[in-house]
Computed example of a mutant assay.
Amino acid sequence: MGDEMISKNASLVGKRIKMMRLARGLRQKYLAERLEISQANMSNIESGRCAVTIDHLIILREIFACSMNDFFVDIEKSGDKFSDKGYSVEDLFKIVAKLKG
């Protein structure tokens, strides 16, 4: 696996973390404090400029009350889209966040 693939995967996981955070109404600063990292580092994770560590994913899994798989859903499929509807995981989290108000 090349660096380009790692960067793409880091970006996809980071986007999922951001969407999960927004869907739950949490601030980036809150997650940064829970992970014991700077808010700038949290921003870099969410934007895919920096990969999240396994230890941080374990903490995030507890915060979001989700499974580890939720961070990696369909990551190996190109386009990161659900084939039958064309919605990405990020699209679905945005919809949920809007419904929550």
Rank of each mutant, 00 (worst) to 15 (best):
F64Q: 06
S38D: 12
L92V: 15
L31P: 14
R49I: 02
I54L: 15
V96H: 11
F72A: 08
I6V: 05
K81Q: 08
D84P: 03
F72Y: 12
R16M: 07
L57D: 04
L31F: 15
F82W: 04
Y30W: 09
D3F: 03
V52C: 05
S38M: 12
V52P: 00
N9P: 00
S47D: 00
A32F: 13
E33C: 09
N9I: 09
S78N: 15
R61L: 04
L92W: 03
Y87K: 14
S78W: 07
R21A: 08
K85F: 03
S43N: 13
I54H: 14
D84N: 08
A65E: 07
F64M: 06
K81H: 06
D80C: 09
S88L: 07
L12D: 02
G25A: 02
K8P: 01
I54Y: 15
V96K: 13
R27D: 05
K18V: 01
I54N: 11
I45T: 08
M20P: 00
C66N: 06
M19C: 11
R61S: 11
Y87L: 15
K85D: 08
N69V: 12
C66Y: 07
I37H: 12
S43R: 11
M1I: 05
E33A: 15
K77N: 14
C50K: 15
A97Q: 12
I17P: 08
R27C: 10
R61W: 01
S11N: 02
H56K: 13
G86N: 04
K29P: 01
G86E: 01
S11L: 06
A51V: 00
R24K: 15
L12V: 07
R21C: 10
S88V: 08
A40L: 06
S83L: 00
L92N: 10
K77M: 13
K18Y: 02
R34Y: 09
F72E: 03
D70M: 08
